[in-house]
């Protein structure tokens, strides 16, 4: 089975220290005011005494490297794609021109246009670090080790082990568009209704919708040429004669 890199997060272990967010920012040179990952907070109400079970929750997150990545569908060039080998959703910086189509297409708001690179940006599981045998920065730095990263299809990996062990109770954040996210929460991650809808920009829809017409027009033109060519090759001599006779 191919890999599926994913995060299995024990949200109840998160203390909202922002270590993961800071580590990501440094590791990936994320510009000021922009973030590749986050900790969402379910405030709860401060209630003195025995705290209710639905108390404050912290939910670490980032790009969920979905099974059905709507962002990939919004990209006309394949600059963002789901890597067949690792299952990660990748941005090819060299091919991305920063048109921004993919940004509203992510219902989790995981994407942004990097203000310095002027290209789409988001969590990519720190491939540079992994090439050195290191864990993604957020996972490596996490004080309570709430974030666990790995191939969930590999039962030997820590992530795979946790994934299998907790399969029945794993929670995913449900967006209005079901993208089948590969970020799994063990324990109550709190807020689960924050994700929105995947919005493919009108320009991209127009391009998708117009593609058959364009193909049709080119096809018609091609048919016309074919008709002319066949006339030239098979019909012309007789008719020319007729014409000459007339």
């Amino acid at each position: 089975m191919a890999q599926q890199l994913a995060m299995v997060i024990d949200a109840t272990k998160c203390i909202d220290c922002k270590g993961c967010v800071a580590a990501c920012k440094v590791a990936n040179n994320v510009p000021e005011g922009q973030w590749r990952n986050w900790i969402k907070q379910d405030e709860g109400t401060p209630t003195p005494g025995v705290l209710p079970t639905a108390k404050t929750r912290f939910q670490p997150g980032a790009c969920m490297h979905c099974e059905n990545p709507t962002c990939v569908d919004a990209c006309p060039t394949g600059a963002t794609y789901k890597d067949k080998e690792t299952g990660a959703v990748i941005i090819n910086d060299a091919l991305c021109i920063g048109c921004g189509n993919c940004i509203p297409a992510c219902p989790y708001n995981a994407r942004f246009r990097n203000a310095v690179k002027r290209k789409a940006d988001k969590c990519n599981y720190c491939p540079e670090r992994r090439a050195h045998g290191l864990l993604p920065a957020c996972v490596d730095t996490c004080p309570t080790k709430a974030r666990v990263f790995g191939d969930i299809n590999d039962p030997e990996s820590e992530a795979g082990r946790l994934f299998r062990k907790n399969k029945a109770k794993l929670v995913q954040v449900a967006a209005k568009t079901d993208t089948k996210p590969n970020m799994y929460y063990i324990g109550d991650p709190g807020l689960q209704d924050w994700a929105g809808e995947a919005v493919i920009p009108a320009s991209m829809i127009a391009m998708k919708e117009s593609a058959p017409f364009i193909k049709g027009i080119v096809g018609l033109s091609g048919l016309g040429v074919l008709a002319m060519l066949s006339r030239q090759l098979f019909v012309s001599s007789d008719e020319n004669k007729e014409n000459d006779d007339a």
């Binding site: 220290c17 270590g19 967010v21 800071a22 580590a23 440094v26 920065a137 730095t141």
Partner: peptide, 22 residues
């Protein structure tokens, strides 16, 4: 370019917080 936790450092349980990263 980056400060990472020393996984062998038991006192911190192999972590580096936001300030450490900063």
């Amino acid at each position: 370019t980056k400060l990472d936790p020393n996984p062998k450092f038991l006192k911190s349980r192999g972590m580096l917080c936001a300030r450490g990263n900063a």
